[in-house]
Structures are given as C-alpha cells and as structure tokens.
C-alpha cells in the first residue's frame, strides 16, 4: 500500500472501522520500529538490556505515543509530514520516560545556599603528579579566582543551582525544572541569562574560551 497523505492519515484515524484499525496498526508498527532502533543504537545507558527488554520498552513507548497522537489529532497543523509529527511525539515519550526513571532519586538539596559551583575545581592546578611550572600555576590560580568571583557576583542563587545541576551534574533541563518549580522553557532562559552574565564578566577580565582551555 502506498504511503498515506497527511489528510488520509487524519481522516483514517478519525473514522470508525477497518480504515482506522489499519492506520493505527501502520502507525504503531512504524513508531515501535523507530523507537526500538533508537533505544538499541543510540542509548548507551541501555546497553545492558536484552533485545526482548528493548522490544518491550519500544512497544510501551509506541503505545503511549499513539494515545497522545490520537488525543492531539486536532492540533496537527499539517506543517510537516504526519509521520514526522507522530515520531516527534514518540521521541518525547521515549526520552521523557527514560529520563524520569534515571533521575527519579536525584535531588538538588545538596546544592545549598553559599555552596561552591565547582567544589573540586580549586584543586585543579595542584595535582601532586603534575605540578605545573610556577608561572603557569599562578596564571591558573588567577583564572580560577576570576571564575569564582564571576559566579559569586554575577549569578542569583537559582541560577547557580540550575547551572551546577545542568553543566556539572549533567541533569536534563526538565528534571531540574521539575525540582525548581518551573518549566523547561523558563529554565532554559534562566540558564541562558546566567551563561551570558558569566561570559561577559570573564571577557571583561580578559578571559577567552581558547585561553582558558589552553591554560588547563
């Protein structure tokens, strides 16, 4: 059977009877196959799962995505292929579910007021195995002091906590947002402002990314 047009997908999924059943089956097969491939090829955190487990996960995610697609058919504006739109929903379901499971025990509580953004960074330049030449060591210490000052003076407490969780701990935006009683979009903007403030502070003190990366 040739590929359905966008209009045919929507019409078949909204109707009753065999066309709807066929459309649901075709869409589910496609989403499940796509999600399975994603889980098996792009998710290193799932490398210990068996093929059967991955298939089961893909089936569950595809089912959830299908329900969301059916619930939101009215919001499909036809600006993309229907299958791309549906795949976008499946992608979000899969990534969200995996992320939720992975970070279910994560807490921001340890990032207390006044804590250091990068607690171990101050030890960067004093490795007992590789003590840098004195001049370089001094230069590194100067840079670290500017970074500390920037964090201390330029960021709000919320920005410091969010940036620590995001850039250091690698916690996804949605998970941080959930714990900070905000949403991903607002958190992204909060972080963007924080990054800009730090960047300008450091640039105004003569620091560039290339210089810093070269120094450490």
């Amino acid at each position: 059977m040739s590929e359905r047009t966008n209009e045919e997908w929507v019409a078949d999924l909204q109707t009753e009877g065999p066309p709807r059943k066929d459309a649901i089956e075709a869409l589910l097969t496609r989403l499940e196959r796509g999600v399975y491939y994603y889980l098996s090829q792009e998710r290193s955190d799932l490398s210990d799962r068996s093929t059967e487990q991955l298939h089961q996960m893909a089936e569950d995610f595809a089912q959830d995505a299908l329900l969301k697609v059916l619930d939101n058919l009215d919001s499909f504006r036809g600006e993309s292929q229907f299958t791309t739109w549906a795949s976008k929903i499946a992608m979000r379901v899969a990534i969200s579910e995996l992320r939720r499971a992975r970070f279910k025990d994560y807490s921001l509580d340890y990032l207390t007021v006044g804590g250091e953004l990068m607690p171990s960074i101050t030890s960067l330049a004093i490795s007992p195995d590789s003590v840098p030449p004195p001049e370089r060591y001094t230069e590194q210490q100067d840079v670290l002091a500017i970074v500390d000052e920037a964090i201390e003076s330029a960021l709000t407490e919320r920005q410091r906590i969010a940036l620590t969780a995001y850039a250091i701990d690698g916690v996804p935006l949605e998970e941080i947002a959930l714990r900070m009683n905000t949403n991903r979009n607002a958190l992204y903007k909060l972080l963007h402002d924080a990054r800009l403030k730090l960047k300008y502070y450091m640039e105004s003190h003569g620091l560039s990314l290339d210089y810093i990366l070269d120094l450490f």
């Binding site: 496609r30 989403l31 196959r33 796509g34 999600v35 399975y36 491939y37 994603y38 090829q41 792009e42 299958t83 791309t84 795949s87 976008k88 499946a90 992608m91 899969a94 990534i95």
Partner: peptide, 12 residues
C-alpha cells in the same frame, strides 16, 4: 537527532 533516528528507522 533522536527524532531523525526514530523517523528514518520507522520508515525503513
């Protein structure tokens, strides 16, 4: 990137 993977595998 995940969307591209899911889409292409789904269509294959």
């Amino acid at each position: 990137k995940a969307l591209i993977t899911i889409l292409e595998a789904g269509a294959s």
